[in-house]
Design a binder for these strands. Sequence first.
DNA 1: ACATCCGCGTGACATCTGTCACATCGGTGC
DNA 2: GCACCGATGTGACAGATGTCACGCGGATGT
Lengths: 205, 205
Amino acid sequence: MTDRTIRLLLADDQALVRGALATMLGLESDIEVVAEVGRGDEVVAAALGTNPDVALLDVEMPGLDGITAAADLRERAPGIRVLMVTTFGRPGYLRRAMKAGVAGFVVKDTPAKRLAAIVRDIDAGMRVIDPELAAESLASGDSPLTERETDVLTSAQSGGTNADIARELHLSEGTVRNYLSSAIGKTGARTRAEAVRIAVENGWL
Amino acid sequence: MTDRTIRLLLADDQALVRGALATMLGLESDIEVVAEVGRGDEVVAAALGTNPDVALLDVEMPGLDGITAAADLRERAPGIRVLMVTTFGRPGYLRRAMKAGVAGFVVKDTPAKRLAAIVRDIDAGMRVIDPELAAESLASGDSPLTERETDVLTSAQSGGTNADIARELHLSEGTVRNYLSSAIGKTGARTRAEAVRIAVENGWL
DNA sequence: ACATCCGCGTGACATCTGTCACATCGGTGC
DNA sequence: GCACCGATGTGACAGATGTCACGCGGATGT
C-alpha cells in the first residue's frame, strides 16, 4: 500500500471522454492506465493481456454492455475489481451491476476531482456506490417483468406493430398482445409506448 | 498567434467529463480554462464574466440546450467562437448548430489527442466540422415537419394517447390525429412510435 | 400431490389509431 | 386577385390495440 502503482483499465465508447479520463487519471502518481478500450467485447481480452488491478467500465458500449462485460470479467479474471461509471443513473443498472459483482458504481455527474480517490478506494477493497442511486434502486425495486414481457417491450422499442413484434420473436400476434397488456399493467402505463418509456427509465430493458 | 493563451469556456452537464476535459486541455501551455459550467442557461453569464476566446459546448444540457446557448452567445457576445461537442451525431443537430453560427461541430468519438488542435484551429478562425456527420446531414436534408407536426411528435414522445396530446397542446383530438398522420407519412413510418424514433434519430425534435 | 407461475395460444369485444375527404381561415408569393 | 400552404376542425371508416376469459403444458415450491 505504501507506494504501489494501481494498474487501471479504461473502457468507454466515447474516445474523447476515454482519452480525457486517461490523461486526468494518468497524472496521479499512483495510477497507471495500462489499457484503453472502446467496446465492451474488448474488455476481457485487454484485461487478460494487461493484468490491471481496477477496471473502470462504462455501462453503455457497443459490442457488449458494461454490465455483461463486468460479469465476464468476474468469471475470467476474478481478481480485477470493477468500477462501473454511467451516464444514466438507472436503478436497474445498479441492481444488475451489483449482481455482476462490481465493486463500485458511480454516475458521470460525480466531480472529476473525486474519481482518483474512488479508484484508490476500490483498489483498497472498498465498495463505492452512488448513494442517491442506491436509494432510488431500493425504492423502485427489481423489475416486475417476466423474461418474455421484457423481450416484447424491447422489441416494441423500435415502434413496430404487433405483427412486427410477433414475427421478430416467433410468437402469435395474440400472444404479443397479451404480453404487452400485462407489461402495461405492471408498469402502470396506459399505452405500450409509455410502458417502454417507464421500463427504459428504470433500466429494466 | 506567437504565444497568446487561448481562453476557453467549458460547458458539459456531466461533471466527470467536464472536469476531465478541463484537466486535459489545461495541460496545454497555450490553453487556459477560464470557466466551467454544467447547465446551458449558465453559459452566457459565464461568458460575459470571463471573456473567453472559445466556448466548448455540449448539445445535451439541462436548463437550455447547447445549440440555443450558442445562438444566445452569438447575440450577446459575438466575438466568442463556439465549438459544439455532442454524444449523438444527429444530422439535425449539426444543421441547427450551423444556423446558430457555431464555428465547429465534433462528436465525442473524436480522439482526445486531437481536441486541443481543434480548439486552436477554431481560435485561429477556422471551421471544424465532423466530415461524416456533414455528409449525413446533407443526405438526410432538413426536417420535413411543420412546426405543429414537430410539437405533436414531441408531445407523443412520452407515450400518451391522442387525448393526452390534445390536452397538452390545446387541440382537438381529431387535429392531433391529422398531424400525427401527416408526420407518419413524411417520416415514412408506420406508427407514431416509429415516427418519433425516426425524428429523434435525425435530430428533428 | 397440489398450488402457483410462466410461456404460449385462441376468441371476443370495446376502444384507440391512422387515413381520407372536406371545410374554414390567415398568410405568402407572383 | 388567385393559388398555395399551414393551422385547425369535423365526420366516417378500416384496421390496430388493449383487455378479458379461458385453455394447455411444464417447472417450481411446499
